[in-house]
Nucleic acid binder design. Structure first.
Lengths: 343, 343
DNA sequence: CTAGGGTAGGAAAGAGTTTTCCCATGGGCC
DNA sequence: GGCCCATGGGAAAACTCTTTCCTACCCTAG
């Protein structure tokens, strides 16, 4: 009470019982304790202000209540939406969420995974597509195997192909659906802000969009595909590059919403109106960005729910021996940022 | 190597030294170890893939590498921006960040603080104004004292008056400065989305705005002050209520940016143009919302930096015996959402 | 009335580190 | 040459729990 901590031993002594009995009362083991002693122990614990030492419990039980969450950048609303879902699920179960920010660096990712392993974390949720680089994927897979060998569980969001359960959007279908809707609006020439070349998610969305165009007998000019960073500023900069050389496109598809936001800002700075001069579409339907004007035509993903489901995969039920994949369909949401072309 | 873990004892045995020596090499204590043994131990550790058990270390050292971060809602960009700053600082120091989401519930807050105490967390950063409710503040203060008595450190963002270091924006001055700029634009009648009545931050911003109006000899009509939730939807709903009864104001001040976003959405839905029909101003300058159109006139706060400084207060240097307060000045940013009134 | 089985309680052995304390060795100094 | 001190190494205690194993007791059945 005075300074420092109250230990279970003190509680036991105060209650006049053994350490074992006190432990059984406090954590409720399989063993029964008589009501009389039970009352005495709980009364003593309350009186002394006992709070179990989580490290000691982790050590003794060899299993902790920590759950890791790895994101690239927590200030990106895409990640914070998913994080909210993961948080909800872990908090419901009385678990502790450890937030790791990788800044898109595989080394940092490995470092954080090792730390979680050191803490005997119960599970970890990896969010965000990683690169298609073979070497770093191999190392990540190895890190995941180590984690699982120690009894930890792993789930991913948007990252198939790893030895772990996954919740992933159907990027290909979503982008195809979007493309067909834009074609139905009358668009024939498209430009694409395709994100980084080595990012799986970006690539799938590009492919899906592309294949729908092909299906409609439309071609995608090479100079109308611009690669750049998967961020708001990447979208801005890619758009400036695109417009600097000029484009015949009537509709611009950015492979995610934050890039689309950057694109709209760039177009505004160039004095172009959306959708009058150029339509713009995104992907994700990030809640925070729904108040943009003109409102963004995009593919809605249930981000928070995806986080929750990933957490559930990593925490609930029995661990699967085969990686499970939960695919989430996106739904096209048509808003004001796209309109039939005027030329 | 096989399954489970490698312990320090195995490393020691493999290297042919005692457990004590191995421990000294791995963590680098004050004691010297000869280069010869040092090399043997590090080689063995690497070969066996040794990873220290963090719980055992925490137990033995009675101090962990966990740092708590408490926010109301991580998907709110205000909090995620601050979280990014805190993350940066903790990650630099090799510490582990635990994210707690309180959903604005004092009970949840207490529960999470207790959990952090159980884990012997090194420090905790509390973000976000709490209510002016005496009772819950008293209990929070008590919780903080418990935490500090156990050697933990505490820092707050936007919450003065607790027994802990604080980084806080100068809400009063910021709001006053904003009011004066709006008056200079020609506005004379203002409406205010004042947020919850019991939220300290909201109240300070209201007061600051109000006092600048008084200073300019302007009154603030009672029916032009609307209270509501401190969120985007709160702003939307407050605006609908305000406009339902009608207002003579030419400028609407929302006490934070997310509320201002809701306000702009509501006005758009009502067919009103910003700023032509009504100017709108906010507070915070949240990065994610900078791409709104019309761009929001607001008071810029260096959110990420505030998070970083709070983390620094909680982690660097010596703990202060007196609570330290770092005040951050906000800077008015005039953008397109406000313009001289047309009537 | 005794043997057997079930149950509540406690002693003690872990769990994997750090750290204290003790010992041995070697060097410097008189 | 003997003494003292500094230094590096190791044994063992400490940290706070959980859990196994043992004992004592009571109840029931034969």
């Amino acid at each position: 009470m005075e300074s420092g901590y109250v230990t279970l031993e003190q509680v036991a002594e105060h209650a006049g019982v053994s350490l074992a009995t006190a432990s059984r009362v406090i954590n409720g083991s399989t063993r029964q304790v008589s009501q009389r002693l039970r009352d005495k122990v709980t009364a003593s614990a309350r009186e002394l202000g006992y709070l179990a030492n989580a490290s000691a419990q982790t050590l003794a039980r060899n299993s902790s209540s920590l759950v890791g969450l790895l994101v690239h950048d927590i200030s990106d609303p895409y990640f914070s939406s998913i994080a909210a879902g993961v948080t909800r699920h872990t908090e419901e179960q009385g678990l502790v969420l450890v937030l790791g920010t990788t800044s898109r660096s595989p080394q940092t990712e490995s470092r954080i995974l090792a730390t979680l392993r050191a803490h005997r974390a119960r599970a970890v949720v990896l969010v965000g597509s990683r690169s298609t680089d073979e070497e770093s994927n191999r190392r990540l897979a190895e890190e995941i195997r180590l984690f699982r060998r120690q009894g930890g569980r792993v789930a991913c969001v948007s990252q198939e192909g790893l030895p772990a359960d996954t919740v992933t959007p159907d990027n290909h279908t979503g982008a195809s659906d979007l493309a067909r809707r834009l074609i139905a609006q009358g668009h024939r020439e498209f430009a694409i802000l395709a994100g980084p070349t080595d990012l799986q998610t970006a690539r799938e969305r590009l492919d899906g969009f592309h294949s729908a165009l092909s299906g409609a007998g439309l071609a995608l000019a090479h100079h109308n595909v611009v690669h750049g960073a998967f961020t708001r500023d990447g979208g801005y900069e890619s758009t400036r590059r695109l417009m600097a050389v000029g484009t015949d496109a009537t509709c611009l598809f950015a492979v995610n919403d934050v890039m689309a936001t950057g694109a709209m800002a760039a177009l505004r700075d160039l004095g172009l109106r959306v959708p009058a001069d150029l339509s713009v579409a995104g992907f994700d339907d990030i809640p925070t960005l729904r108040d943009l004007t003109p409102a963004l035509t995009t593919v809605r993903l249930p981000l928070e729910e995806m986080g929750e489901r990933a957490a559930a995969l990593a925490l609930d039920g029995e661990p699967a021996d085969q990686p499970r994949v939960v695919t989430v369909r996106g739904e096209v949401v048509e808003r004001e940022s796209t309109a039939p072309p005027t030329r």
